[in-house]
């Protein structure tokens, strides 16, 4: 559990309410030049942390997506965070503080389930459905966990790295083309 670099977010520190500070020091953080906070909670601390951020004035969940790290395992993570195959990335936005925070949660392949945050941010509804549909991470407690972009009887999750892109053989070469 590293408290990351001291220069993580000097401007954000006074503006963050005590509720968040009680959650944040327990989770590893990394400095990032594009967002004010970059937090890496575990699956257990994820929902309380999102709730704490919402109470601290982060009114909007601006983005939620999932990433499949199957073929890129060696990414840069802070100490104490075990890389897993899937990662759920949540971008919260505070209109009053004019800040963004990015939360990245590791989700293992054997049990790709994570708690839904639709209780705190109803707007995450469609985004969680999209993450389920395309990457195959299930959100526990989501009111309508169905496919959203693909047909409902589709097999597989297209944005997984082991899901083929489909190939058309190139006529003038033995090797198949890139697509």
């Amino acid at each position: 559990m590293s408290e990351a670099a001291p220069g993580t977010a000097p401007a954000a520190a006074p503006a963050v309410a005590p509720g968040v500070e009680s959650v944040l020091p327990q989770v590893p953080r990394l400095p990032d030049r594009l967002v004010d906070q970059l937090a890496f909670p575990s699956r257990d601390t994820y929902t309380p942390m999102v709730a704490a951020f919402r109470d601290a004035g982060f009114e909007m969940c601006s983005d939620l997506c999932a990433v499949d790290y199957l073929t890129h395992p060696g990414r840069h993570l802070p100490d104490g965070v075990t890389p897993e195959r899937f990662e759920v990335v949540v971008n919260l936005l505070s209109l009053s503080l004019r800040q963004r925070v990015r939360i990245r949660v590791q989700v293992p392949e054997s049990d790709p389930v994570i708690d839904s945050i639709t209780d705190f941010y109803p707007g995450a509804d469609a985004m969680e459905r999209e993450a389920f549909d395309l990457v195959g991470v299930l959100f526990r407690g989501h009111p309508d966990m169905t496919r959203i972009l693909m047909p409902e009887d589709w097999e597989g999750h297209p944005l997984r790295k082991d899901y083929g892109v489909g190939r058309v053989p190139v006529q003038f070469k033995e090797a198949p083309g890139p697509r």
Partner: peptide
């Protein structure tokens, strides 16, 4: 069943 989570 592996991927099906109900009708849309």
């Amino acid at each position: 069943a592996e991927t099906y989570e109900g009708a849309q």
